[in-house]
Design a protein around this nucleic acid. Sequence first.
RNA 1: GGCGCAUUCGUCUAGUGGCCUAGGAUACUGCCCUCUCAAGGCGGAGACAGGGGUUCGACUCCCCUAUGCGCUACCA
Length: 494
Amino acid sequence: MVEKVRVRFAPSPTGLPHLGNVRTALFNWLFARHYGGAFIVRIEDTDVARTREGSDRMMLEDLRWLGLDWDEGPRKGGGFGPYYQSQRLSIYHSHAQRLLEEGQAYRCYCAPQRLEEMRREQQRRGQPPGYDRRCRDLSGAEARRCEAQGIEPVVRFTVPLDGETSFHDLLRGEISFANSTVDDFVILKSDGYPTYHLANVVDDHLMEVTDVLRADEWIPSAPRHILLYKALGWEPPRYIHLPLILDKSGGKMSKRLGQTSIAAYRQRGYSPEAIVNYLALLGWSPADTQEIFRLDELAGRFTWERISVSPSTFDLERLNWFNRWYLRHLPASRIAEEAVPYLREAYGRDERSQGTAYSPEEWLELLVDNVREEVDSLDQLPAHVGFAFVDGVAFTAEARDVLCAPTARAVLEAFVERLKSVDRLGVAEASSLIRELRDLLGEKEHLKAREIMFPVRASLTGSLHGPSLEAVMALLGKERCIQRVRDSQCSLSS
RNA sequence: GGCGCAUUCGUCUAGUGGCCUAGGAUACUGCCCUCUCAAGGCGGAGACAGGGGUUCGACUCCCCUAUGCGCUACCA
């Protein structure tokens, strides 16, 4: 690749951006970065009916969030704009006009109902579907009659009746189609907007795109694009068709609305690092067995030869694994910061440091640091930290059993006794307090570790599971610990 | 129906004719560690869609079949 590589991500703003979209964006971005090229974003808003207000904004926002910055495109500009197709209408018109004049395209006045009937009939007869070319050889007089009736025509491309059209896909090799299976497709709609086929070819050429990385589903329409390039006298770009991402039920991702939108994952507290890492390994693999990759590291190692050709299934479990990894390895301060909205939502506050040895910031970080390993995503966090936020302790059945054990009372009394003599209860102090307690009771009463730890844990949190005991103690603070032990004893005796 | 793409453990994948009694990861599972849950360590179970070729030798190349998916719009 001698010339400078230029690739583009060209979403159509018709809904919530999903994992499939973003994977295509990611691969384009990685390709551009790896080969030192430019990454262009172009909004393909040519379908007036399906365009959703704000969809382009969300797409851009998702890209930004994931760290996929673009060199040219909306909000950024560049020498090949505008980057919204709806602002390039005159460009498409002039090219359509040229094809019209050269006899490589023609106006078609067929009514939608007629086309529909035609298709039904073809279906019924078991014939290949496609436009029957009724308007292909319309006389001037007939065309004028239609115009007089006020019919807005579409412009169709004149596809050769025989021969074949083939193109080279970098991954799959030569793919060819008999021209007889390609019908005279529409390039300009009656509302004046171009179809994907025209807009895409014209823009890729004008924007000097060298490599097209797009989803697999485009392979069947590739011959149309090749034919257009040829008709316009242009050189087609190189093509890499990316394997589709299927959802759990086996269908193409974009067809199911579901919970696969990037926004949904962001809301649930998945990190962009995890999503990028997961997506990168869906359809691409490194030469070794490494699995954890930062974005810049991926850019360094991403080569198109290692993109796979077979479709893959989206697997939430695996995404969760990546997310847990990042939850565990990202700085605690960042996780704490991101946990705030979830805690506020659940408890109306994001800290409860009063009466503890910590500042609000320290407290939050300590809390998050001790539970982050237990969740798949941040939205699960509140469920694990109730003990630190809620006042009354609710006991689980097994916690109750533990507290009713004959040895529990002595343990708790000894615990409170030691607690009283501590003036600052941080994690370190809690830790040594526990050690002393275990030494003492282990020796004197011959109690096992769990016979000591469980009652304390149960009285403090109402549960047998949770963060390490010293963290629990430090998070509650001295007074609340003492209070909870007292309360638990009362509630048991009553 | 037509056209196209694909087919290795449940899932993501390695594998480009001998390195494969098919490797890694995840999920599942056993043990260890441990106050619990995680994490971590060490094990286990688990796959080349089927049939024909080509070859001294096929997961790897060719053909057929099957299956899955995609496209078949004045959607992208």
